[in-house]
């Protein structure tokens, strides 16, 4: 099953990935990261389709996609 990993400490919280996920599987974390902002996380249990749109639009190379 496709999945993504998010480097939460590199995330700057621009939320562009949230806006492009067709399955709406990326959400904002409750905890702050090392940068002092709330990064994004993958919604537990969500069904990723591996479209990689989140990784394509992430300006900071925080997302890796596996199929």
């Amino acid at each position: 099953m496709p999945k993504i990993t998010i480097n939460k400490d590199k995330c700057k919280g621009c939320l562009l990935c949230v806006s492009v996920c067709p399955q709406r599987l990326i959400v904002v974390e409750d905890e702050l990261n090392l940068r002092g902002i709330k990064p994004v996380k993958f919604k537990p249990g969500g069904k990723c389709v591996g479209c990689a749109m989140c990784a394509v639009i992430c300006p900071d190379c925080c997302i890796e996609v596996y199929k």
Binding site: K12, I37, P59, D60
Partner: peptide
């Protein structure tokens, strides 16, 4: 990590 602001096109 780059010095660019969140959502900056330079990083892309």
């Amino acid at each position: 990590s780059t010095h660019y602001c969140p959502g900056c096109g330079h990083s892309l």
